[in-house]
Amino acid sequence: MVDADTRSGDGAEADVRERDPAVVAGEASAAAAVAAGDSGPADVPQTDLTAAAFFDVDNTMMIGASIFHFARGLAARKFFTTADLAGFAWQQLKFRIGGRETTYSTTTGRDTALSFVAGRPVAEITELGEEIYDELMADRIWAGTRALAQMHLDAGQRVWLVTATPVELALIIARRLGLTGALGTVAENVDGHYTGRLVGEILHGPAKAHAVRALAVAEGLDLRRCTAYSDSVNDVPMLSAVGTAVAVNPDSELRDVAKDRGWQIRDFRTGRRAARIGVPSVLGAGALAGAVAAGLAARRR
C-alpha cells in the first residue's frame, strides 16, 4: 500500500502519470515488499542470499483466483450484491477454462480495480483478508507447488509471491505459507484509507517483471541465479527475467513457449504426488485481479 500523503504535490503526481504505469506499479510493489520485511519462519536460515524464487499465485500456487475467493468472502459480508458476485463467477469460469487472463479484464481493471474498497480502512481489509484466507483459500494451495517453494526455503533461498492480487492479500498468503514475502498490486491510501486508485496499474504482465527487477536491486539478488514459476503466458516477461523459468500447470500458449525455450514444466493437475516430481533439479538450475475488477465495475455502473 502507498500513502498518498507522502507525495510532494501535483508535480510528483504528474511525474507518476507520465511514466510507464507498468514500471510505476513494479517499483511500488517492490517498495511495499521491502517495507513489509521478511515474513518467513525465523528458524529457516537464509544462507543463499543472492538466489531467490518467485511464484505466481493464481492457478500456480493456488487453485483458481485468489482475488475471486477474496470477493466471495466480502460478498458474504455484504460488501456487494449476489449479482456482482455472479459477474466474478463468470470471469472465474473463463479463467479456469482458458487458464489465462483476458485483455478486456486487465484493461478494464486499470480504471476500476479496488474501487469497491474506496474509503475503507486498510486495517479493516487486511483483517478481513486474514479471515477469508482461513475460510476459502487455505485448502486450495497446490501441494506440489508448495513443495517447490519449500525446497527453495530449505536451500536457504528467499521466496516471494508475485501476483496481480492486492499486495495486502498477497502478503497474508505469503505469511501463512511461511514464505519471505509478496509482490502485489498496490492501492493508494490516504491516512490509512483506500482512495480506490492504483499506484501505476495492476501488477500484471510486464509490471511483474519490473517488480522482480526492482526487488532484485533492493535485495541484492542475482537474477541469473533466481527461478520463477507461473501458469500463464502473460507472465513470460517475468519468467524471462530470471535464470531459470518453470511453467506450472501451464496454459497451452505457455506450454508451447516453455517447449520452444527449453523451460521446465510441472503439471500438478494430473493428480501426481509432489514427491514423484523432480523438484531438486529446479534448485540445481539455479492477473486475474483485473477480471474481478471488471465484475466489480458493475457495482459502480
Rank of each mutant, 00 (worst) to 15 (best):
M137S: 10
I141M: 12
A143C: 03
A143V: 01
A143R: 13
A143Y: 03
G144H: 02
G144P: 11
G144W: 03
G144L: 02
T145K: 09
T145D: 14
T145R: 08
T145E: 13
R146M: 04
A147N: 12
A147C: 14
L148P: 08
A149V: 06
Q150P: 09
Q150E: 14
M151H: 12
L153P: 01
L153K: 01
D154M: 14
D154N: 14
A155S: 13
A155K: 08
A155F: 04
A155L: 07
A155G: 12
Q157M: 03
Q157F: 00
Q157P: 01
R158L: 12
V159W: 03
W160C: 04
L161N: 01
L161P: 02
L161S: 01
T165G: 11
V167I: 13
V167M: 06
E168S: 13
L169N: 06
L169E: 05
A170K: 04
L171C: 05
L171I: 07
I173T: 13
A174I: 05
R176I: 15
R176F: 13
R176D: 07
R176W: 08
L177I: 04
L177K: 02
L177N: 03
L179P: 08
T180V: 07
T180A: 05
T180S: 08
T180Q: 00
G181Q: 00
G181I: 08
G181L: 03
L183M: 05
T185G: 06
T185Q: 02
V186E: 01
V190Q: 03
V190C: 02
G192H: 03
H193F: 07
H193S: 10
T195K: 01
L198N: 12
L198E: 11
V199S: 14
E201N: 15
E201S: 15
I202K: 03
L203I: 11
L203E: 13
L203W: 09
G205P: 13
G205D: 15
A207D: 05
A207V: 10
A207K: 07
K208Q: 13
